[in-house]
Design a binder for these strands. Structure first.
Length: 412
RNA sequence: GCGGGCGUCGCCAAGCGGUUAAGGCCCCGGAUUGUGGUUCCGGUAUUCGGGGGUUCGAAUCCCCUCGCUCGCCCCA
């Protein structure tokens, strides 16, 4: 009998954990510089929260949630974190804090989907949210920080796509116009698009089916897509965002067909994709969700945010190598070695040793294979004189040192 | 939910119907009872994801099943 990690999940092994640490540290540093505070919410919430928050016309809610019932209570492993953060925002009355409130989070999310490159059932997201600002200056800051972060990680081949999907009112009008334009040719669209036509016609614009894309680019439909149907205030909001992005020298592409799979978005939506990823090429996705706080029972509060898929990030960036071990103690006296190791560690030096007091040559070999910078020899001769032998494994030089000299010698 | 590819030691991998299942890496031991990263020698799969079947004989052929993987869909 052998066990495997469940489908779509992955162990993060010791050899890769430093990449996580590296990315998380970079994120924290950057976010804190911009006054974002970390928030940690539970990995499960009431199912109702996601049905309301994420939207029950979405695939996420309809077929991708890990839901379980306990004592008549339906709970769900979070498929994304905005709903949870908004819930916490409301529950703790954070709207009364001096605004705007800027939060960031990281952690595992769960979606029941067929795994493939860049898609897992348990995956990790890093995200941020800004509450209380209606002005696109908040959208711009959110985008700027996302781009800055990705650039700091040395990612190349990134494309920022933006769009404005209007507010609930003008979007409904837009939906109708799109439906009207598509209706004459509806029969030629794919099966999925027929469903979308009724449930969420805007998502037809996002269909990857070649035939559908062809149909969408016919003049009759394309002209409708490209005409501005969003209302004056929404247009103004979008124009202002573009000005901010120009001010910040952030390149973008306007993609009128960009809609997002979550129902809570309004106005600004954006996506950062990489040409170096497979078919799951979105590294970051987000947008504005002004109605959500109210939808979930809080006071009317505009908000904007984004999330990044950490596993997708890893496949794109190179992290610096792990720090080598400073000292490996070579000794045939396990007691002395253990004691010495704990003493030296007090000085902030990383130390390991062979627990089995093996042959001298074997221990030296181990020291070398471990990648330690120094071998510290403590055997009969050293115990007698009280002086230790410190060998630099890169140069081969060795010298006698007193225990007190070790921190200085090692930290050169 | 629907397609395609793949499953031989911890990892990489030969073998493609004939019987002790190559090889490399890693690991362990020795050459070398106080000096490693090089070298040399030795050790580690009763077994080929699992279950049936065909056959005198199967890792090799057939069926079923499980797992992994890539793509569709959707998204981070």
């Amino acid at each position: 009998m052998s066990y495997k990690a469940p489908k779509g999940t992955k162990d993060i092994l010791p050899c890769e954990s430093y990449i996580w640490e590296y990315i998380e540290k970079k994120a924290r540093t950057l976010f804190e510089k911009a006054n974002y505070k970390e928030i940690r919410t539970p990995v499960f919430e009431s199912t109702e929260l996601f049905a309301r928050g994420v939207g029950d016309s979405t695939d996420i809610v309809n077929k991708e949630m890990y839901t379980f019932v306990q004592k008549d209570r339906s709970l769900t492993l979070r498929p994304e974190n905005t709903a949870g953060v908004v819930r916490a925002f409301i529950e703790h009355g954070m709207h009364r804090l001096p605004g705007p409130l800027k939060l960031w989070y990281k952690g595992p999310m769960f979606r029941y989907e067929r795994p493939q490159a860049g898609r897992q059932r348990q995956f990790h997201q890093l995200g941020l949210e800004i509450f209380g600002i209606e002005s696109p200056s908040a959208d711009a800051e959110a985008i700027q920080i996302a781009m800055k972060f990705l650039n700091e990680l040395g990612l190349a081949g990134l494309v920022l796509e933006i769009n404005n999907i209007g507010c609930p009112e003008c979007r409904n009008e837009y939906k109708e116009k799109i439906k009207e334009a598509i209706r004459p040719k509806l029969r030629e669209f794919c099966e999925d698009c027929h469903l979308r036509f009724e449930k969420n016609p805007l998502r037809i614009l996002d269909c990857k089916n070649e035939k559908c894309r062809e149909l969408l680019s016919t003049p009759e439909i394309d002209s409708v897509i490209n005409r501005e149907f969003i209302c004056e205030p929404c247009v103004a909001h979008f124009e202002e965002l573009k000005e901010y992005l120009k001010l910040l020298e952030i390149d973008y592409v306007i993609n009128k067909k960009l809609v997002r799979g979550l129902d809570y978005y309004n106005r600004t939506v954006f996506e950062i994709t990489s040409t170096n990823l497979g078919s799951q090429n979105a590294v970051c996705g987000g947008g504005r969700y002004d109605p959500l706080v109210e939808t979930l029972g809080g006071p009317q509060t505009p908000a904007v945010g984004w999330a990044m898929g950490m596993e997708r990030l890893f496949s794109l960036c190179k992290a610096p190598g792990q720090k080598p071990l400073d000292v490996f103690i070579v000794s045939d006296d396990t007691k002395e070695a253990l004691k010495l190791a704990s003493e030296i560690r007090e000085h902030g030096i990383s130390v390991d040793f062979d627990f089995s007091a093996r042959k001298f040559a074997k221990q030296m070999e181990k020291a070398s294979k471990t990648g330690a910078r120094f071998a510290l020899i403590l055997r009969e001769e050293e115990l007698k004189t009280g002086e230790l032998t410190l060998k630099n494994l890169a140069t081969g030089n060795q010298e006698k040192v007193s225990p007190g000299e070790i921190p200085e010698k090692v930290n050169i």
